[in-house]
Write a protein that binds this DNA or RNA. Structure first.
Lengths: 132, 132, 132, 132
DNA sequence: GTGGTCTAGACCACG
DNA sequence: GTGGTCTAGACCACC
């Protein structure tokens, strides 16, 4: 967890878990580490983990069973929400603007996108599931 | 300026100016509106505009000449900074992760990227140069 | 038993038994399954069943005869406790508030209430008496 | 705020605000008391108020403008989400079951519902807007 | 053991 | 002044 990256810790946690699910490291039905355990592992406060878990639950990505734990719940929806798409396009536009200022060409950009989809973006270690 | 988008107003200003430059609405050497004028146009606090100008100057995109005004200074660098690229790839990865959860496929994604580069994303009015 | 509904399992058990009594599936004097048997059927911990039985007994709805078992004891009281009524009206108010935010009109609401009373809400199988 | 009602304080806050909007005490565009002020008024911790505000924002009922405050944002949607409706019917069923055990008849129940809709349920004081 | 709630108090970015 | 984030530590209900 990068304290000074500017991004909230709980968002970083959310991203890490989402990524692990996309990579297949976490599968539907798998149990996530308990709030306390995750907090210990990631060196953050349990409240911070709880906040991340709750936000993910609100997004329908995980589910919590009181007294039992938290579990991966999601399967990707096939249809795209239009309002979300507008927001996303705005974000993409800003990112591409930045990329252009960095000197990235359209070709290089397309290559980076393809790389992400193709290569499982670099086979990362299981941050959030079993062994750290 | 979208007050409730969650993004800081000064970043939105920065993005708008950067976009105008990419679109050719603002050219190298052009004079930007004064801080006060821009503030009035965009209905924000002058401090907010000043902050945006200062940040853009730090990025080498605009330049202030004391007593004369603020001018577009940049031309895109041809080579890519490696450290910046790493940060960028991280941001891209997060964006693509979100896109996947939204239900966007790789094809659709590539199409969106191509669209941004191709279409000047829809010929917008000069937000930050002439009139609002 | 819906593990992820957020409601405590023992409350769900209580509700199920109460409903069965209202529907006539369980009649006054009928014997309920033993704690162990119910636990096995509903795939919950025996402690959970015991807690539900105890709470129902406290409400005067069932009775335990030591060494013999647990029996349906209740008949509906004709008069309404005023303190209970206040609490109930509060709960109703909250439910109707939520309903309004969901977009339900008064007419639709009245229809839903009538439906519940009229239809025995769909003739369900005996969840908690005979076989599961 | 009733500490021992069993319901979380932040949910009680949410309900109070929703009710005030339905009653017209809070109108679209109105500013809510700041987190700190509301906390002081209701004698709860600012974090608790923040939690309530954030949950309401997630439901689209209020909106926050960073550094400016929190505002009423919503207008009721005309169409009813089917999944929500199922959950609601379940809650209604449980409430009506309890009502029956209390001795409430269908007629009395319909009267209570009509009363809530008709009478603005008793013209309450502005809990959450101007003066307390 | 699990997650949920609440408090107290700190620091920060934004306007 | 506003809300957002994070920590530390407490208590609770549920299983």
């Amino acid at each position: 967890m990068n304290q000074k990256s500017g991004r909230p810790l709980y968002e970083q946690l959310m991203y890490g878990i989402k990524e692990d699910i996309l990579l297949g490291i976490l599968q539907v039905g798998d149990k996530l580490p308990s709030v306390r355990e995750m907090a210990q592992r990631q060196l953050v406060n349990p409240n911070t983990v709880a906040k991340a878990y709750k936000a993910l639950e609100a997004q329908g990505i995980i589910e919590t069973v009181l007294g039992r734990g938290t579990f991966v719940a999601m399967q990707l929806s096939g249809d795209v929400d239009d309002r979300q798409l507008q927001i996303f396009k705005q974000q993409l536009s800003e990112l591409l603007t930045e990329a252009t200022y960095m000197g990235l060409t359209e070709q290089k950009m397309q290559a980076l996108v393809a790389e992400w989809y193709g290569g499982n973006h670099g086979i990362k270690s299981k941050q959030f599931s079993e062994n750290d």
